[in-house]
């Protein structure tokens, strides 16, 4: 369904664009407090209203997009950067000690949800956006490692790999030359899905104070700030929440659309 891909790309693109624009322009300066204009409902001057300090919600959402997207993207980078080579190596040494070691390591990391990793890191080193990146990134590693290994194992049994081995190519070279190009589609699709999960995870972590710290704006903390005020100013919770939902929805639609477009038989994992 090409429609999913386009709708997803438009939604995601909107927020990426908002994040990029925020580097040069936001409707209001959010560091300047404007107490007289606090808790305004959406209106002509402040499209999404203002918070309890009179800060413009739209501007904060634009800046928050920056944090969310950066954290999730870097976490996907960590996951792919470590997970794909580990998965390739495990598949290349299938059934041997290295494979076993990597897979048991993966199982172990799977037992640590990213929130738990974030709790550990924060308790030890203090809070910050970097913690969120590391916590979500570590969580992504086994996802990519397992997926890579599974897909690569399927390929290692294929005759074209045997043909490459017959002419004496090393397993590292075969992994790069033959395996990687054939799993690239799968990785792109899974990367999109992990990106969307990263946005959700970052929001959760900053909501409970384990993510980006003030004054860095983030969607999760905007929601935490909104919590006590939600009955008198529902817009405080509504708009940041919608931003998360639409970004994640956009990425998921894009992932599904990409899969259908690239290769409908790709098996991605979603959890």
């Amino acid at each position: 369904m090409r429609r999913n891909l386009i709708l997803g790309a438009v939604l995601t693109g909107t927020f990426v664009l908002a994040a990029l624009v925020s580097f040069v322009f936001t409707p209001y300066d959010i560091e300047a407090l404007d107490i007289p204009n606090k808790l305004q409902p959406p209106n002509g001057a402040h499209w999404f209203g203002t918070d309890h300090f009179g800060r413009d919600i739209l501007s904060m959402i634009m800046l928050g997009a920056r944090t969310s997207i950066a954290v999730a993207l870097l976490a996907v980078g960590i996951g792919m950067g470590l997970g794909i080579p580990l998965g390739l190596a495990a598949a290349a040494r299938h059934g041997r000690a290295l494979d076993e070691f990597i897979m048991r390591g993966n199982d172990l990391i799977f037992a640590f949800p990213s929130l738990v990793i974030a709790i550990l890191i924060t308790a030890t080193f203090g809070a910050g956006a970097v913690n969120a990146i590391i916590a979500i990134g570590i969580f992504n590693v086994p996802v990519f490692a397992r997926l890579t290994r599974g897909a690569a194992l399927g390929l290692w049994g294929r005759d074209f790999i045997l043909a490459a081995r017959v002419v004496g190519k090393s397993s590292a070279r075969i992994s790069v030359e033959h395996i990687l190009p054939n799993i690239a589609n799968l990785m792109i699709v899974q990367g999109t899905i992990q990106f969307s999960l990263g946005i959700l995870a970052e929001a959760g972590l900053s909501y409970v104070g384990l993510g980006a710290q003030p004054p860095t704006p983030s969607w999760g903390r905007m929601l935490a700030d909104a919590q006590t005020l939600v009955s008198i100013a529902p817009h405080l919770a509504l708009f940041p929440g919608m931003a998360i939902v639409l970004t994640v929805l956009g990425l998921n639609l894009m992932g599904d659309g990409l899969r259908d477009w690239l290769d409908p038989r790709l098996r991605v994992v979603r959890a």
Binding site: L200, A203, Y207, L223, Q227, G241, I244, V245, L246, L249
Partner: peptide, 11 residues
């Protein structure tokens, strides 16, 4: 799938 559970909880 796209809804963060804590936001949904607030709603």
């Amino acid at each position: 799938v796209a809804v963060p559970n804590f936001w949904f909880a607030m709603i």
